[in-house]
């Protein structure tokens, strides 16, 4: 999976990420951990790779990172912010 690039723009500001989805005309934001995942999702990633990013950045247990990543990815998917050709 990776972030949809068509009609979606995002920018990191003070550790948070602001996302503009032109297709739905909405602004969204993520916190710091969300920004870590957003950064990784600029390229094709697996859930495991995203969870590893949280482990490396925050030193949290792998199972917590996996659960949190799956929850966050579900939020992104619900907002149609992912390219889901092969997730």
């Amino acid at each position: 999976m990776k972030l949809r690039t068509n009609s979606v723009s995002w920018r990191e500001i003070d550790g948070e990420t602001v996302i503009l989805d032109l297709s739905s005309s909405t602004y969204l934001k993520t916190n710091a951990a969300g920004s870590t995942i957003m950064r990784l999702l600029s390229e094709e990633r697996t859930t495991a790779e995203l969870a590893d990013g949280l482990v490396e950045e925050y030193g949290i247990p792998a199972d917590q990172a996996t659960a949190d990543t799956e929850t966050f990815v579900a939020m992104l998917r619900e907002r149609n912010l992912l390219d889901t050709a092969d997730s």
């Binding site: 602001v18 996302i19 503009l20 032109l22 005309s25 909405t26 602004y27 969204l28 934001k29 993520t30 916190n31 710091a32 951990a33 969300g34 870590t36 995942i37 949280l54 925050y58 030193g59 949290i60 949190d68 990543t69 929850t71 966050f72 939020m75 992104l76 907002r79």
Partner: peptide
């Protein structure tokens, strides 16, 4: 940095 689980929030519409 204290860890907070990743969250996605809607800020509002462009309009």
């Amino acid at each position: 940095m204290a860890y907070q689980p990743p969250v996605l929030e809607e800020v509002g519409s462009v309009r």
